[in-house]
């Protein structure tokens, strides 16, 4: 970005490094006894779309926050474009974030701005581009997600699927080297879901960026991603390409792919036996 308004940080990001993101033995927890993540190792190669899957509350979103530098690991290293995130100061961190787009769960569109202004927001805040150029860029991004006709609507006037597409357009507004998607499919109807899935793939290939998709939607992911990590209780318990996942015999992967209610991820929360519970009440 030649037009960045603010002081360029002295930190050099190596956009050409083979891996866009590397997590090495990353441990994170809000308190010592119950780590959210325990010694996670993950590699996200440049130009690929990688999914991180797991049940709700398994620490997936925490991984995104660690990559974006909103959280710092207790142990281990998070390396983005050859630069350890934990070593960055505030300016360096903001420098990194200018090159990273993120789509939040449910979009997180700015409710007081129009669709147009939402996408123009990062351009206006972070660059000195003239108004006409911003206008053209925004319309291009909107065209890419098929919503050029909705430019003047407010986010409250959009359907869930449309809002997600606007958020996607905003995430790629500055042509980032890395785009993170937090549950991009949550709460969408099957058609919108397919549209968003295809957009993620298409944008990634068109921009030559790298995508990390945190989701629990296995079917959509298998269609669009290059590689899948399964996370449960803070650990990577399985990984592989979509073909490997489909053929996998790992009980956890099978439970996830087949949607079984019980399996390695138990249906019941750990408790004492039912008979004992009743006996305790009777006595």
């Amino acid at each position: 970005m030649a037009h960045l308004k603010h002081r360029a940080s002295s930190v050099a990001f190596d956009a050409q490094s083979a891996n866009a993101v590397e997590l090495k033995g990353v441990t994170f927890g809000y308190d010592r006894r119950r780590p959210v993540l325990a010694a996670i190792d993950m590699t996200i190669p440049r130009g690929k779309v990688v999914a991180i899957m797991g049940a709700s509350g398994s620490g997936k979103t925490t991984i995104l926050r660690l990559i974006g530098g909103q959280l710092r690991p207790v142990k281990g290293r998070v390396v983005v474009a050859g630069q350890s995130v934990a070593d960055l100061d505030r300016a360096g961190l903001f420098g990194l974030r200018r090159r990273v787009g993120m789509l939040f769960q449910f979009g997180a569109l700015f409710t007081d701005l129009t669709v147009f202004e939402n996408i123009a927001f990062p351009m206006r805040e972070l660059t000195d581009l003239p108004d006409e150029l911003i206008r053209d860029l925004v319309l291009m991004k909107l065209n890419a997600v098929g919503l050029r006709g909705s430019a003047q609507l407010k986010p409250s006037e959009l359907s869930g699927g449309m809002a997600r597409r606007v958020a996607l357009a905003r995430a790629i507004a500055l042509d980032p080297m890395l785009v993170m998607y937090d549950e991009p499919f949550a709460g969408l109807d099957p058609i919108s879901l397919g549209v968003v899935g295809q957009l993620i793939r298409r944008m990634n290939d068109a921009l030559g960026s790298t995508s990390v998709v945190v989701t629990h939607d296995i079917y959509e992911s298998l269609k669009i991603v290059d590689y899948i990590y399964f996370v449960s209780e803070g650990r990577v318990i399985a990984k592989g390409t979509p073909d490997e996942v489909r053929a996998s015999t790992d009980p956890f992967v099978r439970q996830f792919v087949d949607g079984e209610p019980d399996g390695p991820v138990p249906f019941h929360v750990r408790a004492r036996p039912l008979a004992a519970e009743f006996a305790a009440h009777a006595g």
Binding site: G68, Q70, F94, G95, R97, R98, V100, M102, F104, Q105, F106, A108, L109, F110, T111, F121, P122, E125, L126
Partner: peptide
């Protein structure tokens, strides 16, 4: 508060704003 609840503040932070 609503901007925080709907992740708008976090989104801004992730945009380096």
């Amino acid at each position: 508060g609503l901007m925080k609840t709907t992740d708008q503040l976090a989104a801004m932070e992730m945009m380096a704003v």
